[in-house]
Nucleic acid binder design. Sequence first.
DNA 1: ACGATATGGTTGAGTCTTCAACGATTCGAT
DNA 2: ATCGAATCGTTGAAGACTCAACCATATCGT
Lengths: 166, 166
Amino acid sequence: MNDGVRWLTEDEQRVWRRYLAATSMLSEYLERRMQQDAGIPHTYYEVLVSLSEAPECTLRMSELAVRSRFSRSRLSHAVTKLEAKGWVIRTSCPTDKRGAWATLSEQGRAVLEAAAPDHVEAVRKALFDVLDSEQVRRLGEITGAIVDGLAEECEAVEADADEGPG
Amino acid sequence: MNDGVRWLTEDEQRVWRRYLAATSMLSEYLERRMQQDAGIPHTYYEVLVSLSEAPECTLRMSELAVRSRFSRSRLSHAVTKLEAKGWVIRTSCPTDKRGAWATLSEQGRAVLEAAAPDHVEAVRKALFDVLDSEQVRRLGEITGAIVDGLAEECEAVEADADEGPG
DNA sequence: ACGATATGGTTGAGTCTTCAACGATTCGAT
DNA sequence: ATCGAATCGTTGAAGACTCAACCATATCGT
C-alpha cells in the first residue's frame, strides 16, 4: 500500500478538517458581521486599515496590494469601488508616471472608525474569547510557521517563473 | 480611554494578523495547486470528497451542502457545473418530491482519485511539514474551540431569526 | 542614445458567490 | 380536510475575484 503518496493519518485528517471548518466558519462569520453591522465587506475594511496605518494615509497601489494581500488586479477593482464610495482617493504619482497613490479620505477614516468596534468585537467573540492565553501564544507560533513555509514556497514558484521555459 | 470597546492588545493584534496571513496564504496556495495540478478548484474537490464518503456515493443536496459547508444556492450552482462535466449525477427523490440526490459518477470518482495525491501533497507541504506533532495536536484543540464557539453563535443567530421582529 | 525588457497599473471577459425571490412540496394545527 | 407555515432546491441578477492581455512608463545593456 506504499504508492509513494504521503497520505494523511487519521489524526491529521481530523485536524485538517477541523482547520477547514474553523477557518471557513470564522471568515464567514466575520464577513457577515462586517457586512451587517458596518455595511462594509471585511476585505475592504482591511484595505482601509492598511491605508490608515501608512504615513499621510497614503500608499502606492502595489504596496497597498502587498499589505492587504490583494492581487494587483483585485486591488485595482476594489479601489475603483472604494473611490466611488468616496472612501479612497486616487492620485497619480509625479515622480513615476506609471504609478498611482491611494489615499484614505476623511470620509473613509470616519467609516473605518465607525466600523472598528464592531470588527474587534467580532474577532474577540470568534477567536480570543474561546482561547486561553496559552492557546493564543501557540496559535501565533503555528500561524507563523505556516506563513514562513509558504513564503518559501512562493519564492520558489517565482524563481521558477523567472527562469522561463528554457 | 475606556470607551467600552475591548480593543486587541499588541500581542493579540500580531496573532490576528498572522492568522489572516496564514489562512489566506494557505487557501490561495491550495487553490492554485489544485487548479494547476489537478485542474479542479479546491472547493469542488471537497464536494466530490463528501460524496465519495457517503453510502452509495449519494447524498441529498441539503446534506451535501452541510458537509461541504456550502450554502444551498452555492451548491446548486456548483452541482450544475459538476453535472455538466459528468462528475456528478442529479436524480430526483421519489419519497420527497421536493428533494434531489447527488451521486458521484464513475468519471467523478476517477477525477477524485487522480487529484487526491496532489491534494494531500499540497496539504502536507503547507501545513504538516512545517509543524511538529505537538503543534498539530494543539492546532486541533484550537480549531476545535473555534468551531464550537462559532457553532453556538450560529445557533443563537438562527434562534433570533426564528423569533422574528416581534 | 536606443532598443529590449521589466514594472506599475488598468481593463474586460469569464467564473464563482451571494442574495432575494420563487415554485413546488410537505408538515402541523385545527 | 384544509389552510398556513416551514422546507427543499433552483434561478437570475448583482457583486467580487481571477486570469490574461494590454498600455504607459521606467530601467538596463550596449
